[in-house]
């Protein structure tokens, strides 16, 4: 790729989604953009970029940003956050909320493995918390990722990364060469396209947000806005999960790290968001 083409891609990703794309990583850019160029019937990536410059096609620009935003994910990624959710967060919220729904948001959920992992945990814990009701939402920037998430259909390779075999046996069915989550688990999650870099109107709606490996993928100026969005979306006594090595430094007045629980933050109930 020409440096000016890579720079344009990086600029579009930062402006539209707050994504930090290194224009020097041409291999990464090309591996993400080549399938898009093929889908859009361009002969090559340079042709795609030329068309984008010439037409200012909004749909195409978003397709490019979505292609760059897609990232690898897996069931029960890092394992520990899901154990924390199961052993600490869910019992606490089940007690506090009583029969009121516990609302969980898997932000930037990609192809859905995180949201479904949470759904499986909830389903497996249901007997311990009689009367508990849970609503799970998965959001991503990419429509294509959400389509796959909604199908609940995964390859043999995908179901072997992070998913314990007992969960596979309990919650999946074989679908020819692939594996599909049971209707019961699929029905527990609702999906929606959300751009985390935009202003979100989700005031206090969620009790738990999993927003992992998003901050670290964003340009510096966007991190504060993302955390403001998370603070706004969380209930005053809600919890935020971040990825390993991610911190709330860009907005540390809004969240308190939960002692001895790396990656888990409690919303500071006194933090007031500017209107």
């Amino acid at each position: 790729m020409k440096p000016e083409d890579s720079a344009l891609v990086a600029q579009l990703c930062a402006a539209r989604a707050g994504l930090n794309v290194d224009p020097d990583k041409t291999y990464l850019l090309e591996s993400r953009l080549a399938p898009l160029a093929r889908r859009e019937n361009f002969g090559s990536i340079p042709e795609l970029i030329t068309a984008l410059r010439a037409s200012r096609d909004d749909r195409l620009a978003w397709a490019l940003v979505e292609a760059m935003a897609s990232s690898e994910t897996e069931f029960f990624r890092d394992r520990q956050p899901f154990a924390l959710f199961r052993d600490d967060v869910l019992p606490t919220l089940a007690r506090l909320r009583g029969g009121q729904p516990i609302r969980i948001w898997s932000a930037a959920c990609g192809t859905g493995q995180e949201a479904y992992s949470l759904a499986m945990v909830v389903e497996d814990q249901r007997a311990l918390h009689p009367g508990m009701t849970v609503e799970i939402f998965g959001s991503d920037l990419s429509e294509r990722a959400l389509e796959k998430a909604q199908s609940g259909l995964y390859t043999q390779f995908e179901i072997q990364r992070g998913l314990p075999v007992r969960q596979l046996v309990q919650h999946f069915e074989k679908a020819e060469d692939n594996w599909q989550l049971s209707p019961r688990i699929r029905q527990m999650v609702r999906w929606r396209r959300v751009n985390l870099a935009s202003e979100l109107n989700t005031s206090g709606r969620f009790d738990v947000i999993f927003c992992r490996y998003v901050l670290s993928a964003m340009v510096e100026p966007m991190r504060q806005r993302l955390l403001e969005n998370m603070a706004r979306a969380l209930a005053p006594d809600g919890f935020l999960f971040l990825g390993q090595n991610e911190t709330v430094n860009a907005l540390d007045e809004a969240f308190q790290p939960v002692s001895g629980r790396p990656g888990l933050y409690a919303r500071n109930p006194d933090y007031k968001i500017a209107a």
Binding site: P164, V165, L168, E173, K174
Partner: peptide, 27 residues
Amino acid sequence: ENDLARIREALDAGAAEYIMKPFDGDI
């Protein structure tokens, strides 16, 4: 072997986990 029945049989016999070939280091 990648049928659910086979996987259940392995677990019932005392297997702790189950890998379906092909595999890689991550799996």
